[in-house]
Design a protein around this nucleic acid. Structure first.
Lengths: 301, 301
DNA sequence: ACCGGTTACGTATCCCGTAATCATT
DNA sequence: AATGATTACGGGATACGTAACCGGT
């Protein structure tokens, strides 16, 4: 039995659904199903009642839930204690990130990580992708997360940790309500507000538009703003539309102020990559990698 | 992190040696080394100081030892509780075994298992191999452990759980002291006391002697005794020599009353096989299989 | 040379993701 | 139809054992 299985089990128990837990943990539903099944096999007793609306804990599942929480709690205690015992080098961690990742996904994750290990000193270094990679080489940062592909660099390990998607960001008003997709042409008929040239979005859009023989510059955005939150405010108030990563507008989506539409004929996939030198990793760095690659941790604030 | 790794770690911490722990857990030394290494990697801190004489816990290792014991204790509690909640079918387990296995290896294991799950009702059914297999088919026993190969039976799963060896059993007196091997010829010059014809030993010896074109009957034992303990008493007192499985004389070996010698030119390996029907396994049966196949559990009393 | 731990490598198993399927509303 | 769970299958990671290799007594 793995501790991760307890974690998975607790998530399922909390949200009372295999599929919801799968989304939260960023793994597939069959993976959840298989893990729960293997736990039921392991303990020789049914843990969930499957209903059409989700799942509910059996009495045995309730007992397991209780113990699983205790065991996980103990283990977190243990990790905190061990972290406190590490030598000086292992008490300090410098994480690099691009503005998009650093401002949304990572910012929250770092707080969670720091909550787990209060003794750690963590610095978040935000810069553009090229600079970040240079800093990894120079050992100024221990590891970094960037949303653009990092290629042709030897001595660096690149691991995909999350898949985001490019979406059209439009106000949730009478004109757009109910829509789920939009063509690029229709989008361009509106006032388009984008991040500035040279930003990560620039690179991402160049990449995504290449199959259409278009480039970032061809979009001719009426306004370029270097602040993601300023763009969101503008869109919310009906001043225009934008294109961005779903993760950066997750909070606003929940509030219903804006809509995120799929752009037809554009492959929306954007991979977030964890990058680090394969040698010279400190213990903290390894633990952070484990933290950030474990399901469900890379969440927006 | 797996619970089994905590278990492994605790064993190493207790015996303060990788190789000793490997023997106890019936796995190889490199396996121990790799597991401990992966735990040190996982927590980012060294857990053992390696010395030429074995290993000692670092301060971090001491902390982990403490927590590991707590976590394992909690988990055993959990398993007990879940076992108590199982339905009636899952509270009863019938284990089959041949006399050799049942009288030595399993007898102790079953007590350990019962200690873990006091609510269980366990029956140990001892019979000869053919009868045992029949009883598995008839669902009179849930699973069995036999020390002879079970072949050509469809619908049965056979898993090797332990490797024992056939040894010559001689008194620890002036004549034999210091010896580690013996030829079959020399052995036959002594009064040979064996288990009765038709016993498992009969089958095992027929198998082991086949490469030499010999059979059990060719040994012409001067005495056949159906009781293993009676044979051991006779050998201890210098009344003769015998051949048997190392496991059956482990206790006497520790006391130094007798010696176990390798018989030259005889392949001593004897596999203990776990046998069960692949369908219709109860939860308890699965748990017992897990118990018995987990390292270090199949120990002589 | 021996004992104890590590490294290297081939193999078996497990776990996940994708895709197809089943069951219920 | 649509939602939610299971089954089938292929690929990647993991853990084991064997064998060869150090390092200290």
């Amino acid at each position: 039995m793995q501790l991760g299985q307890f974690d998975l089990f607790c998530q399922v128990a909390r949200v009372k659904s295999f599929s919801k837990a799968a989304k939260l943990l960023h793994i597939s539903q069959p993976a959840i199903s298989a893990q729960i099944h293997s736990m039921e096999e392991f303990y020789g007793i049914k843990l969930f009642e499957r209903t059409p609306h989700g799942v509910t804990l059996t009495p045995a599942g309730t007992v397991l839930f209780d113990y699983a929480k205790q065991i996980l709690e103990l283990h977190e205690d243990l990790e905190r204690k061990l972290t406190g015992m590490a030598d000086e080098k292992n008490q300090k961690l410098v994480v690099g990130a691009t503005p998009t990742v650093g401002g949304h996904a990572l910012a929250c994750g770092i707080w969670t990580f720091k909550d787990k290990y209060p003794d750690l000193q963590i610095n978040l270094e935000i810069d553009n992708p090229q600079e970040i990679v240079t800093k990894i080489y120079d050992k100024d940062v221990d590891l970094a997360i960037v949303e653009c592909p990092v290629r042709n660099f030897k001595g660096l390990t690149v691991k995909n940790v999350f898949t985001d998607e490019l979406v059209a960001i439009v106000p949730n008003n009478a004109h757009w309500a109910g829509r789920t997709t939009v063509t690029l042409d229709e989008l361009l008929k509106n006032r388009l507000i984008l991040r500035e040239e040279g930003s990560e979005l620039h690179l991402l859009l160049d990449e995504a538009l290449r199959p259409l023989n278009l480039r970032f510059a061809d979009l001719k955005p009426s306004t370029s703003i270097s602040s993601a939150s300023a763009i969101k405010t503008a869109v919310e108030n009906g001043h225009g539309v934008s294109i961005g990563l779903r993760l950066t507008v997750q909070k606003e989506l929940r509030h219903g102020n804006i809509l995120a539409l799929t752009i037809e004929n554009v492959d929306p996939r954007v991979e977030y990559n964890l990058v680090y030198r394969d040698d010279d990793l400190t213990g903290v760095a390894k633990r952070f990698i484990r933290f950030i690659t474990s399901p469900g941790e890379l969440e927006v604030c």
